[in-house]
Each structure stands twice: as C-alpha cells, then as structure tokens.
C-alpha cells in the first residue's frame, strides 16, 4: 500500500498518476484465482450427487488406502452394478473414494462457512448499527454484552456449546453464528459512529427524516460494504473452526463426510499413505487462503490503508 502512495505522489505527469490509480483498482490474479476456486467448490458441492463417481460412503474393500490413480471396481452413485473406476485422488483407509468425499465434504465447510457469518452479519450488524446510532444506554448494554462474549476464549466456548447441545449441522451453524456476532457488531458500530457525524446524515436529519429512514437509507447501505468484507475474512476463520471441531470428532456426525474428519481419519496411516490426510488438508488450506485473499483484496479496495493483513 505504501508503494502505491509513494509512487502516486512521486509520479510526474497526470497520466502516470492515473495509471497508478487504475492499477490499484484492478483486482488482478490474486483475486480472480481464489474466486475461481471458490466458485468451482460451490459448483462441486451443489452438483455432488450427479457426478459419475461412487457415493462418499461406498467402500471398496479391495482397494484400501489406494494411491491416487488406482483403478478399482466399485458401484457408482445411483447404480447397483460394479463398474471400473479410476480413483483420481486415491481411497481412504477403509476404501472410500477421496474425491467423492472431498466434494461432498465441501458442503459442510461451505454451509457453515457461509451461513454462520450471515447470522453474525444480520444480528451483530443490526446491534452494532443501533448501538452506534442511538448511543446512550443501548450502546452501553450492547458493548458490555459483546465484551463478555469476547471474554471467553472462542474455541473453549465453542467446545462448551457443542458439548452441551450435541453435534449437528444446525447446532454448529448456530454456535459459530453466535460467536461471530460480537466481532460483526464491533465493525458495524465503529462504522456507524463515524457515519452518523457525516454531512449527508446531518442533512437528512435537518430535512426532518425519521430515524428509521436515516438508518435504512443512509446508514445501512454504507455500513454493509465494510461488514461484508469483514464477513469474508470471518468465513476463513469459521472454516478453520469447523475443521478443528470435526478433526476432534465434535462436528457433524460420521456418515456425513467433512474435511476435518477426513484429515483425522488419515492420521493413523500418515506414514504409509499420506495422501489420505494431505489431500483434504490441502483443500482446506486452499479454501481458507482463497477467502483470506478475497477479503484482503476487497478491504484494500474500500480502505487502501488497511490492506494486506
């Protein structure tokens, strides 16, 4: 970021300065590659059931922990007869197709990674905007409650919630969504605080606009973008959190494949067949990296000072 400002101020001609600005605005490969990966992943997760590959639970007893590229006989999803099939990514320690489990497992990561921040965005965003706009007692209560939630170490609280509620997809989405409320509320409040003093809000007030009108038409549209960008980074955090839980066996129960579970299952054969662990691990890292990169790039767009971590 410093580079562009320095280049920008040092630039001699007007045209050169413009070129620098345009370069800054272009999103570049570092944005579009991650987007491509996420889109592919979503497409795979949505259409997982229709691919000519074995179901994630189907077991090939003859090909356990088979290396990527091994050919075996297995019944494909929706068929009852055995047919020849090449395990592109190999099989896991009990003989299930890793590619199929990977694609189906993406559903859990994406569902949790995308729905939980949405809860944080809606509830936390609303609380933050109200606190930042009305100030006074509302703000005091909201800030205090958020501080208390943040006072718990997140992973310990998450473990407690899943321990007491029991592991299921819905509980996980709710628990992680709950945990993402305080941070979103802070972002929303901070942005509202500075927006509420801006001229266009004062102008609307002077024209006699109601609070509701100002909130909906003036404040929320402007808070939404920073909040969305923040949520993008939150997605990365929550995918890791879900992965951690499923690695510990505290996420979605077994027959449903999830990346964390796959990574854990490969552990006993880590030496002999590292691909069982490393393939889902790589998928998870790539996905987290993608959301980080997208969020970082978008943040750089709205606030050039804050870009890069």
């Amino acid at each position: 970021m410093v580079e562009t400002t320095i280049d920008g101020t040092l630039a001699v001609g007007e045209a050169e300065g413009l070129a620098v600005r345009r370069r800054r605005r272009r999103l570049g490969l570092g944005f579009w590659l991650p987007v491509t990966w996420i889109v592919l992943l979503m497409f795979g997760a949505l259409t997982a059931d229709f691919w000519p590959m074995p179901a994630p639970e189907t077991i090939d007893f003859l090909n356990r922990a088979a290396a990527p590229g091994t050919v075996g006989e297995i019944e494909l999803a929706g068929e009852s007869e055995l047919s020849e099939f090449r395990y592109l990514l190999g099989t896991d320690n009990i003989g299930r197709d890793i590619l199929s489990r990977l694609i189906h497992g993406a559903r859990v990561s994406l569902l949790i990674g995308l729905l939980s921040p949405l809860i944080g965005l809606l509830v936390g965003g609303a609380l933050g905007v109200l606190a930042g706009y009305y100030r006074g007692r509302i703000e005091g209560v909201v800030v205090a409650v958020m501080d208390i939630i943040l006072a718990f170490p997140a992973l310990a609280l998450l473990l407690a919630i899943t321990f007491y509620l029991g592991p299921s997809l819905l509980n996980l989405i709710l628990a992680l969504g709950f945990l993402s409320i305080p941070a979103s509320a802070r972002v929303a409040r901070a942005n509202t605080l500075s927006l509420a003093r801006r001229e266009f809000v004062l102008a609307a007030k002077a024209m006699g606009a109601s609070d509701l009108y100002i909130l909906v038409r003036e404040i929320v549209p402007n808070v939404l973008m920073p909040l969305l960008v923040f949520s993008m980074l939150l997605v990365a955090v929550l995918i890791v959190a879900e992965g951690t839980l499923s690695f510990l066996g505290l996420s979605v129960p077994p027959p449903t494949p999830s990346w964390g579970t796959m990574i854990e299952e490969g552990r006993e054969l880590l030496d002999e067949a590292p691909h069982i662990t490393m393939i889902p691990a790589a998928a998870m890292c790539l996905t987290v990296l993608s959301f980080n990169l997208i969020g970082d790039r978008l943040r750089g767009l709205i606030d050039p000072r804050e870009s890069r971590l």
């Binding site: 951690t244 990574i263 030496d271 590292p274 490393m278 691990a281 890292c285 987290v288 990296l289 971590l309």
Partner: peptide, 22 residues
C-alpha cells in the same frame, strides 16, 4: 506469510509430524 496464516493449526501440526518426525 499469507499462505502460512491460512493453514489451520492442526494441519500445520500434521505436516510437521509428517516431515520432521516421520
């Protein structure tokens, strides 16, 4: 750094076990 911060701690642990110990 960007790549490393995107690695979940438990994956980092397994990668280290795989390379350094195994």
């Amino acid at each position: 750094g960007f790549a490393m911060i995107s690695v979940p701690p438990f994956v980092m642990a397994l990668v280290l076990i795989f390379t350094v110990s195994l």
